[in-house]
């Protein structure tokens, strides 16, 4: 079972690339839903054959992740897209070509980082740490290089996904309950962001964050 974890992590890496490469907001959301589903399977694949985790906890965390990351959050985000009438295309300040190259570079950096980093215990599978870092960094890339508020939500999601993957290395120390708490926080965060974006778009006629930097007293 553990062998399939690397394939799942490769899927996560590919969806990172896709999120950075695609020009459509909806496919961004869909890719993040797929990534969420892959993440939901990850603990199941990693720990069922490993040490004795209580199977009940495992099932709860998987079902919770699947429900929240693969279903609820994508629905919330796409609802926000629909209701706030944002443009259906991502609005990058760095061209899509160079964002893909940057994402590849970040992937390389995360491979390098994972060889340098000393972990309290070896990671359960080879790709876990590099992909965790890559997802985290890709999240930052999305946050920095996209103009629309909706894409920032996806950036935050990617960062949380990276933290989730990295959390798997500490699964023995950190109880899954903590992970569930984080998941709930995230859901509330996205919920609030969705509502905020809705309100902003009702007050103003766009949600272009670029214009925030021109604000003066």
């Amino acid at each position: 079972m553990k062998d399939y974890a690397d394939l799942l992590l490769l899927l996560v890496a590919v969806s990172n690339l896709y999120i950075v490469a695609t020009s459509r907001l909806n496919s961004c959301v869909r890719a993040s839903a797929i990534q969420g589903a892959a993440l939901a399977l990850l603990p199941l694949v990693l720990w069922t054959s490993g040490f004795n985790v209580q199977l009940f906890h495992l099932a709860v965390i998987c079902a919770g992740t699947l429900a929240i990351k693969a279903i609820v959050i994508p629905i919330l985000v796409s609802r926000a897209i629909r209701e706030a009438n944002v443009r259906r295309e991502v609005d990058p300040s760095v061209s899509l070509h160079s964002s893909v190259l940057l994402a590849g570079l970040l992937m390389g950096i995360s491979f390098w980082m994972s060889t340098v980093l000393v972990l309290p215990r070896p990671a359960p599978t080879m790709l876990l740490v590099p992909v965790a870092f890559a997802t985290l960094l890709t999240g930052f890339l999305v946050l920095i290089s996209r103009r629309q508020a909706i894409t920032h939500v996806i950036g935050y999601l990617l960062i949380e996904n990276g933290v989730f993957i990295f959390g798997q290395t500490l699964a023995r120390e950190v109880p899954f309950a903590v992970e569930l708490g984080i998941l709930l926080d995230l859901l509330v965060g996205i919920f609030v962001m969705g509502i905020a974006i809705n309100h902003i778009s009702r007050e103003f006629d766009h949600i272009d964050t670029e214009l925030l930097s021109t604000l003066k007293d």
Binding site: L10, A13, V14, L17, Y18, A21, S23, L96, H97, V100, L101, A103, G104, M107, G108, F111, S114, T115, M126, L127, P130
Partner: peptide, 27 residues
């Protein structure tokens, strides 16, 4: 204009694969 992006994506994916292969070799 999207074609180079498709191919750059494929190259980056192959680059990731190369990193994995090297990383596996080193580990």
């Amino acid at each position: 204009t999207r074609v180079p992006q498709f191919l750059i994506g494929a190259s980056v994916l192959a680059g990731i694969g190369l990193a994995i292969a090297l990383y596996r070799g080193a580990a």
